[in-house]
Nucleic acid binder design. Structure first.
Length: 597
RNA sequence: CGGGGUGUGGCGCAGUUGGUAGCGCGCUGCGUUUGGGACGCAGAGGUCCGGGGUUCGAGUCCCCGCACCCCGACCA
């Protein structure tokens, strides 16, 4: 490709609204352009890099028996109503009506379509197992798109779906993906770790997320350096220190003026925060059939701990959870800052109240809790004696330094970008949509499903994030839009001859099957070199009068400082060798990764 | 959805007490230059986010919207 014809320009300055290095550089180098919040065009360079990534995905999917298909972007609402997600998922789902006033959905994922295909195509255990996949556009109207391509609303995703006759089959396909995904990321040149994760809107039995670790990541992970425990903060557990057993003491009301926070309360009473109970108020949306009801949630955790809203959401089977406002808290008869489940009015005119307490609360005697009266707290509240909860479960968030649930060593908190995920769905969708098959024993059984996704744009951005320096991008050979950046410098002296040499080299390289971006523009050396660094192709060749007079063409790798002169007639071989070396270096990193349950 | 910020030429920005818009980069033409974002000369390019209002007069002041970015909530 000639740069004089390339449909994108480099920018000297990044748009002011870009923050992450990958975002700035992808825009500056002309890989992407923004159309609206979270909506981007892939320009020619970006598209080529994406295609490289997607072909790696294809290769790895095909290697584990995948068959590529393309499913529709637009779905009738009916299939989403069948599984209930039409009601469960909120504003994130793109909905519209067609001209006949029928409800339609913009596909955010394709379990429903796969289940529909399955019930139409699969009738016998003889047809299983199956692995199908597609690389296709998704729409998720994220409330807050950000960070360039990391978090967008419209994006391309490789999503695969496994269909099995039994759980053993699912396990096999799940593990095949587990490794194939590592292969994909390693072939793209980024290190990732797999962590156990929440199943979220997908439902199902088990899930892993592949995390690229970077401070710019928006997910928080807890890792144990001593054993191999790793989990998303949303589901991470830890070893809780149970309080020493005590005899329940008499309930006592004390004045605690200006003690609205746990810290102030503990300080005022001279007790550790672990001797207090913290109440958190939320409003939950809980689906019940095709309807959903709002409930006021009273969550109680020990004062020294933090509520984990994902765990609470799961305990409530809620579709939405948000903090309650002061007005709402008052409306149910509680007093902000001094609230507790003790002495809460049985009924209120606002919303039904659900009380959920952390498992540690019943084990902790004589906690200080609010008195539901401004300026007062209760000493010695005891679960069971003074109040009861609707649900007792594990509710607290793991934090840096908490004990690993497996080995007790301190956990470490890191940030990461979720570049892929795998889910054991089980029969959630096949049950809902009647996707069954006849098994060997003659019985009708639901197909067992798995679902696996990788966003290609997010992966591209992660690769850019991992591989760049102050001058620009540094693409791994496997992802680079072109392998070679050919620069011609045509000074006054010998300009014509230099140009002819470069033109010939451009043709020869292409004839040899090398992917070349050829900077044939009329521009100064500084401009060309800076653009080459910015775009970041792995190998740079410079044809100039100076280099030619010294006997050849200058050869430089983007990831190295050294430049060397290579005679013209050896260039093609040298380039092909270097490409092979770069590939080999990447493939050396594609290794077996032990499965961590 | 809460909190904060920003909207002026393609990009980055300035614009004073309110007086009819400017700088750098980029772009066009001509010439000089050519190994790390060259220089000269001549140009093109602006509904100042939108709508109301105040005023003789609004990029500037006041309302109401919208868009984009950041933090949080949320998120496969």
């Amino acid at each position: 490709m000639r740069m004089s014809r390339l449909f994108s320009q480099t920018l000297r300055e990044a748009p002011a609204d870009a923050e992450m290095p990958s975002h700035k550089l992808l825009v500056r180098a002309g890989f992407i352009r923004q159309l609206a919040a979270g909506i981007y065009t892939a320009m020619p360079l970006g598209k080529r890099a994406l295609t490289k990534i997607e072909n790696i995905m294809r290769a790895e999917m095909n290697a584990i028996g995948g068959q590529e298909i393309t499913m529709p972007v637009v779905h009738p609402a009916e299939i989403w109503q069948e599984t209930g997600r039409w009601y469960q998922i909120g504003s994130e789902m793109g909905r519209f009506k067609d001209k006949n006033d029928r409800d339609m959905v913009l596909g955010m994922t394709h379990e429903e379509v796969v289940a529909d295909l399955t019930r139409k195509e699969i009738h016998s255990y003889r047809q299983l197992p199956v692995l199908i996949y597609q690389i296709q556009t998704k729409w998720r109207d994220d409330p807050r798109p950000r960070a360039g391509l990391i978090r967008v609303r419209e994006f391309t995703m490789k999503d695969s779906y496994s269909l099995d006759a039994d759980w053993k089959g699912l396990d096999k396909q799940y593990r095949a993906h587990y490794q194939a995904y590592f292969n994909i990321f390693h072939r793209c040149g980024i290190p990732v770790i797999a962590v156990k994760s929440d199943v979220g809107m997908m439902g199902g039995k088990m899930a892993h997320e592949y995390m690229y670790l970077t401070p710019y990541g928006e997910d928080t992970l807890l890792l144990c350096d001593a054993c191999d425990y790793s989990a998303n903060r949303q589901i991470a557990t830890f070893q809780k220190q149970a309080a020493p057993a005590e005899e329940p003491q008499l309930l006592e009301k004390v004045a605690t003026p200006e003690c609205k926070t746990i810290a102030e309360l503990a300080e005022f009473l001279g007790i550790p925060e672990s001797k207090t109970a913290k109440a958190v108020f939320l409003i939950a949306e809980i689906p019940e059939g095709e309807e959903s009801v709002q409930k006021f949630v009273f969550a109680v955790v020990r004062g020294d701990m933090e509520l984990n809203e994902t765990k609470l959401t799961n305990a409530l089977k809620a579709s939405e959870l948000r903090p309650a406002t002061e007005e709402e808290i008052i409306a149910v008869g509680a007093v902000p800052g001094y609230a507790s489940p003790v002495g809460l009015p049985e009924k209120n005119d606002y919303l039904p109240v659900v009380t959920v307490v952390d498992e540690l609360i019943p084990q902790s005697a004589n906690l200080v809790a609010g008195a539901n009266e401004a300026g007062y707290h209760l000493l010695n509240t005891n679960y069971g004696r003074d109040y009861k909860a609707d649900i007792v479960t594990e509710l607290t968030a793991a934090r840096q330094g908490d004990g690993c649930p497996r080995c007790g060593e301190p956990l470490r908190e890191v940030r990461g970008v979720e570049v892929g995920n795998i889910f054991k769905l089980g029969t959630r969708y096949s049950d809902a949509m009647g996707a069954t098959f006849q098994d060997k024993d003659g019985k009708e059984k639901p197909v067992i499903m798995g679902s696996y996704g990788i966003g290609s744009g997010r992966l591209l951005a992660s690769v850019a994030e991992e591989h760049h320096d102050e001058y620009g991008l540094i693409w791994p050979i496997t992802v680079a839009p072109y392998q070679v950046h050919l620069v011609v410098l045509t000074g006054k002296k010998g300009g014509e001859e230099t140009l002819q040499t470069a033109e010939q080299l451009y043709r020869d390289l292409r004839d040899a099957g090398v992917e070349v971006l050829y900077d044939d523009r009329v521009a100064s050396p500084g401009v060309k070199f800076n653009d080459a660094d910015l775009i970041g192709l792995p190998i740079r060749l410079t044809v100039s009068a100076r280099a030619l007079s010294q006997g050849g063409v200058e050869f430089k790798r983007r990831d190295q400082q050294e430049r060397r002169l290579i005679p013209l007639d050896e260039i093609i071989t040298a380039v092909k060798d270097e490409i092979a070396t770069l590939h080999a270096d990447i493939m050396a990193k594609v290794v077996e990764v032990p499965f961590v349950d």
